[in-house]
């Protein structure tokens, strides 16, 4: 019920206390001044049309295997030219791991916390002014149970709650086919750089959860996706803005029973990581990898093909400049 109440609700409540007339005017004036200030502050955010920084470099994609989550990222980001290419001094960086599920790291329903922490460290080392992590969670305790909040905060990030209606701002997606309008978390409006850190796992509805699917956790009304077509909406969201960097965590892989993995999921330790500034390429590579492990192939992950056809990225892996690193 209250989910849909506007922020202004709070004024009315404050005024409803019994106060004298003079006090009423004084309070009312100061409140409206504060409100006007807040309104202007909220309006002063960057316009959404700008893109996040997406530099191009030597490699389109780096794939790593046999390392620790943090160690693989160290090597991978070095191969891409270092985090300084993606994050400038003073940038506001938003990291979007998958931490929607009430599951511990071993269950592989959420992104590996060590990886998230290492990315935070790299961002701060590159001079980021502020690093946030958030997700629109499906379970209240998942920030803490996943271990990501603790790890990221220790590394210097701020965890921002994603489960509150009021932090989601309406945006239009003119190039989209289905998802023509939605509400995204306001952190995305503030961010100079946006790092997408999904976990590769099986998904009951889209066959695989990958980088594009992970961005579904940036919007408020996930039901819209389910109502009108998951694959198209997932691809449509990329028309808004493409992430600066995509880091697909395949250290532990849930190969069935996803996305929650409750009860009877099988989790394998694959120790792999795929890093790419191109979200479609990252997904295509991850889906191919998933197919090899017996999850599902790229041809069965609908949103990759759609995004490719919409020209949102490249899924022709054979033509990409890929760096493979075995540790």
């Amino acid at each position: 019920m209250s989910r849909f109440e506007p922020l202004f609700e709070s004024f009315r409540n404050l005024e409803s206390e019994p106060i004298s007339r003079r006090e009423f005017f004084r309070k009312g004036l100061s409140l409206s001044a504060a409100a006007a200030g807040a309104f202007m502050l909220s309006r002063a955010r960057p316009v959404f049309a700008q893109n996040w920084r997406t530099p191009s470099g030597d490699y389109d994609l780096v794939a790593l295997v046999n390392g620790t989550p943090g160690g693989m990222f160290d090597r991978g980001i070095a191969a891409l030219g270092g985090m300084k290419r993606f994050v400038r001094r003073g940038d506001t960086v938003v990291i979007k791991p998958n931490m929607s599920w009430h599951a511990e790291p071993e269950q592989a329903a959420n992104t590996n916390p060590e990886l998230v922490a290492r990315i935070v460290e790299h961002c701060l080392a590159a001079g980021a002014g502020k690093v946030y992590i958030f997700d629109h969670v499906l379970s209240r305790n998942s920030y803490t149970v996943s271990g990501i909040q603790q790890a990221a905060e220790n590394a210097g990030a701020q965890a921002v709650p994603g489960g509150a209606d009021r932090y989601y701002q309406s945006v239009k997606l003119p190039k989209a086919k289905l998802l023509i309008q939605t509400r995204v978390h306001e952190l995305l409006l503030e961010a100079d750089a946006f790092i997408n850190v999904p976990v590769l796992k099986h998904h009951g509805s889209t066959n695989m959860t990958l980088a594009m699917k992970n961005l579904m956790g940036c919007v408020w009304d996930r039901g819209y996706y389910h109502r009108y077509g998951l694959d198209q909406c997932i691809a449509d969201f990329i028309t808004l803005k493409k992430p600066t960097l995509n880091v697909v965590d395949a250290y532990r892989v849930m190969i069935n029973g996803g996305p929650s993995g409750r009860g009877h999921a099988k989790v394998l330790t694959k120790r792999m990581q795929i890093i790419s500034p191109d979200i479609v390429a990252a997904d295509a590579a991850a889906a191919a990898q998933g197919a090899q492990w017996g999850v599902y192939g790229a041809e069965r992950v609908g949103y990759i093909g759609i995004a490719d056809r919409m020209g949102l990225g490249r899924s022709d892996l054979e033509n990409l400049n890929i760096k493979k690193i075995m540790l």
Binding site: P69, E104, P105, E106, N112, P113, E114, A117, G147, A151, H202, N207, R252, I255, N256, G257, K266, V267, L268, T269, W293, G294, V295, Y296
Partner: peptide, 17 residues
């Protein structure tokens, strides 16, 4: 789905991270 004849991987890593 996922019924690949993959190893069961009983020794899932011990460290929390």
């Amino acid at each position: 789905a996922g019924r690949s004849p993959e190893l069961e991987d009983p020794s899932s890593p011990s460290g929390a991270n």
